[in-house]
């Protein structure tokens, strides 16, 4: 029995377990020849500039982000039409519409999506390490409704521009769209019970795997194994400016002792409704109570990172 051919989007806001999930998939494929090499994961990503150019033949450096987005549905339809197996394609883009109102991911391109979501308070910490910025910058970034990746216009990022719409906007864009059946997987559940979380996602994508195969993949993608490999060989997809290993802690709930009350309040103020919808308990620190914890105002970070946030996995 094989999985039905087509595209499965593996969608998430940056730093929400996407890479870990890809490593689980790689280990499932590796079978008893695992653990899979974290530096040979394959890098199918929806915002791949080279793939866009290979399919459309166009020089994307001569096109605006919106004009590129207008053609992206055609690229995904093409990939889907030519697919002879199941393709899991990573995506950090929010589920957006082109200026003409067409879904940028193509209305009929994908069979399904697995949407990974993580507590934004933990995302903030992880992002700060990843981009080598302050936590305040990272909070500013996840709160920005117009936040993007790879949107710098003074050079050519390896990836195409990705609109994120901020953490809340990202979550609702994927969960509320009605074109692609979506399975929501909370990072915290995947950490607590990887076998159950991974199995449910595979079932949704109709990708057959036995319990033993899944358990082996989970063992081989264990965080200590990833840290061991990164320690010995490095991780090619890591962003160059990061200030900590890519596989840093993998914990859920680290925000409790890493964020100040004021920082927590700033995240919750903007994201409370969606956090509650996803079952993330609010600490409900009123901003006024956190006022004595004021720190320097965050630098505006339009598209975090330079020289090239797009060159790396997030």
């Amino acid at each position: 029995m094989t999985a039905p051919a087509g595209i499965i989007w593996l969608a998430s806001f940056p730093r929400s377990g996407n890479t870990w999930f890809r490593i689980l998939l790689a280990n499932l494929a590796a079978g008893d020849s695992g653990p899979a090499d974290i530096n040979k994961l394959g890098n199918a990503i929806a915002s791949d500039r080279d793939e866009f150019e290979a399919v459309t033949l166009l020089d994307s450096g001569l096109m605006s982000g919106d004009d590129i987005d207008r053609l992206r549905p055609r690229v995904y339809e093409r990939i889907a039409a030519e697919a002879t197996e199941q393709h899991w394609i990573k995506a950090h883009d929010a589920y957006t519409l082109t200026p003409e109102g067409e879904p940028m991911f193509g209305r009929y391109a994908a069979r399904a999506a697995v949407y990974l979501v993580r507590d934004p308070r933990d995302v903030a910490i992880s992002l700060a390490y990843h981009f080598g910025t302050t936590i305040d910058d990272a909070i500013e970034f996840i709160n920005r409704p117009d936040g993007t990746l790879a949107d710098w216009r003074t050079g050519l990022p390896v990836q195409l521009r990705q609109k994120l719409h901020g953490w809340s906007g990202h979550v609702t864009s994927w969960l509320d769209q009605t074109h692609v059946p979506v399975h929501t997987l909370r990072y915290e559940e995947l950490v607590a019970d990887p076998v159950a979380g991974f199995s449910a996602a595979l079932r949704f994508a109709e990708k057959p795997a036995t319990e033993a195969e899944i358990e082996r993949a989970v063992r081989n993608a264990d965080f200590t194994e990833l840290q061991r490999q990164e320690g010995e060989m490095g991780f090619a997809e890591g962003y160059v400016l990061r200030t900590a290993p890519f596989f840093r802690s993998g914990r859920a709930g680290g925000w409790r002792d890493k964020l100040t009350a004021e920082q927590i309040a700033r995240i919750e103020e903007i994201n409370a409704p969606v956090m509650q919808r996803l079952g993330y308990e609010l600490s409900l620190i009123p901003r006024s109570a956190a006022a004595n914890d004021q720190r320097i105002a965050p630098v505006r970070a339009e598209s975090v990172g330079s020289p090239d946030p797009s060159a790396s996995a997030v």
């Binding site: 399919v55 459309t56 053609l71």
Partner: peptide
């Protein structure tokens, strides 16, 4: 009657 095609060619 194209011999080959892409989304925009």
């Amino acid at each position: 009657s194209a011999d080959a095609s892409g989304p925009n060619w």
